[in-house]
């Protein structure tokens, strides 16, 4: 099989052409922080955590949406990248209300883990805390917009894996919110199949099931990856 030569953090690697930098890193045991990436779903480059430096390009590029090219020289561990990751993480916490102690996902949250990983001990930015709704209209599930970081993993899981297209994003910029149908309450959605895939895809405590109590939420985003893998069996 054809391979191409690339260099990541001074390590010479042979990788398949056409894969993303993120995939090349993960395949070779190089850790890259991500939030909006979920294996099996399409990549959108929304969270800006997987930024990498590429020699010859003077801006940082997201590893999940940039494909490898031969003789690419990539760095994932420079001080600049670490600084940016810290900033991005703080901005996640500064926008909406992420108070872990009263969150269902406490102890089982990718955002919380991210905070530990980048060593966030305080937040240098003013908190915005926009007024957000908690949608409890669904029979089994809850959408708490206060915990949402707009990674859109639920949107992609719903459309790409379940095919229901219940979720999408309204407005733009600071006003963006995840919506169900015509911004109707989730419980009145005519497209939702109540499959719960969005819950598994969600990295934070924004989507959860009504039968869990605070701090007891368990998430299995790898379920989505498994589903996508198993779907391929149908085609062979």
């Amino acid at each position: 099989m054809n391979t191409i030569d690339i260099k990541i953090n001074e390590r010479s690697l042979k990788v398949l052409p056409g894969i993303t930098i993120l995939q090349a890193c993960r395949d070779n045991g190089i850790d890259i922080l991500t939030m909006c990436h979920l294996k099996g779903l399409s990549d959108v480059g929304a969270c800006r955590l997987c930024l990498v430096e590429i020699e010859g390009i003077n801006k940082l590029l997201s590893a999940c949406t940039t494909r490898v090219a031969s003789n690419m020289v990539i760095r994932t561990d420079t001080e600049k990248i670490k600084r940016y990751q810290r900033i991005t993480t703080e901005l996640f916490f500064a926008e909406r209300n992420h108070v872990c102690s009263v969150c269902v996902a406490n102890g089982n949250c990718e955002l919380q883990e991210l905070g530990y990983k980048v060593g966030m001990d305080h937040i240098r930015y003013p908190f915005l805390f926009p007024e957000c709704k908690v949608d409890t209209s669904h029979q089994y599930f809850v959408m708490d917009h206060n915990r949402c970081i707009m990674c859109t993993r639920c949107v992609r899981a719903c459309s790409e894996v379940e095919g229901a297209f219940n979720w999408d994003v309204k407005n733009r910029g600071f006003q963006v919110r995840v919506i169900s149908d015509f911004d109707t309450p989730w419980g009145e959605s005519i497209t939702c199949t109540s499959c719960g895939k969005c819950l598994q895809a969600c990295p934070t405590g924004a989507l959860w099931s009504k039968d869990v109590v605070q701090g007891q939420l368990e998430k299995h985003p790898e379920m989505i990856t498994e589903l996508v893998e198993k779907r391929k069996l149908l085609l062979t």
Partner: peptide, 25 residues
């Protein structure tokens, strides 16, 4: 109006959420 959006969604076989997100974008 909402019922026009619903009409378009039905005619084009598009999910309501996508139409709403386009309109608000």
């Amino acid at each position: 109006p909402m019922n026009v959006l619903a009409y378009i969604a039905k005619a084009l076989h598009l999910p309501p959420s996508r139409i709403y997100s386009t309109v608000t974008f």
